[in-house]
Amino acid sequence: MVAQKMNLSSKIIIYGILIFLGLFWTIPTFGLLVTSFRVPDDTSSSGWWEVFTEGKFSFTLQNYSAVLNPGDGATSNTAATINLNQAIINTIIMAIPSTVIPIFLAAIAAYAFAWMNFPGRKFLFMVLVALLVVPLQMSLIPILRDYRVLGLNGTFLGVWLANTGFGLPLATYLLYNYIVTLPREVFESAVVDGASHPTIFSKLVVPLSMPAFASFAIFQFLWVWNGVLIPLVFLGDDPSRIVLPQRILQMIGQYATNWQLLTAGAFVSMFIPLAVFIGFQQYFVRGLLAGSVKG
C-alpha cells in the first residue's frame, strides 16, 4: 500500500540497502554451501569464491554421500562412521516434544498469570522471569545427580523435561506479553456466560494466540535443535541416542581441516530447521507479540 506512493529514488535507496544487507547475511552461508560440493584438494588450497573467479570447480556430491552413508558394513562401530541418519532421527525425537511441551505449559501458566487470581501471583511471576538469566550450566550437575536416581539419564523424557525447564522462563515471559493484551471484554462475556477457565483457554485463548504459539514454537525448535550442552549431558554418549550438533562437533575433532565434510555435515544439520521456517513462514505475518502492541 505504501510502496506505490513512494518515489523512485527512495525506492532505489531502500532496495539498495536491503540487497546490501541481504548479501552480507547470505554470503557466508553461501560459501558453506559451495564448499560442501567441492573436492578435498580444492578446499584446502583455495577459497570457495575461486569457483567463480578462477573456475576452480569440480562439482561433487561425494561429501554428502560420505556424511549420509549408513556405513560400509565392514566396521562394527557406529560411532566411527559419519552416518548422520540416526542422528537426524534422534534430533527429531528430541526436538519436537521439547518444543511442544514448554509451549503448552508456558501457555497455561501465562494464562494463569494474566487472567486468574491466586496468592503470590506477582511474586511468582517475577521469580520466573528473573530465572531467564540463570546460565543453564549451573543446573547440569545437580539435575544429572537426580536423574541417575530416577533412571532418567540417557532418556528422551529426561531431555524433554530439561529443555522444558530451561525454556519455560522465556516462553512464559513472551507468551504472557501476548496473552495479557488480549481484549478484556472477550473474557468478561465468557465468564458471564458461565464458561470455566479450561473452556475459556481452549475455546478463546488458544485460537486467538495461535500465531504467537507458532512463531515462538519455531524459535524454541531452532534453539533445541541446535543446542549442544543439554543433549551432551542428559542424553549421554551412546551412538544410538546421539544428536546432530554433537555429531558435527565430533566431526570437527576428527576432520578439522576437511572443510568439505564439515560443511556438508553442517548443511545437513541446517536443512530441517530451514524447511520448518519456510513452511511456517505465513505465521510470521501476524506473529509473536503482535497482540502486545495494543497495550
Binding site: 547475511w25 564448499t35 550438533p245 570437527i252 564439515l262 553442517a266 530447521p273 530451514l274
Partner: peptide, 19 residues
C-alpha cells in the same frame, strides 16, 4: 535471508565464520 543463520547451530556457524 536474515533469518537463515537462526537455523544454523553455533558449531556450524563457527565453521562458516572460520571460512
Amino acid at each position: 535471508a536474515v533469518f537463515l543463520p537462526m537455523a544454523v547451530s553455533m558449531i556450524a556457524a563457527a565453521v562458516i565464520w572460520k571460512l
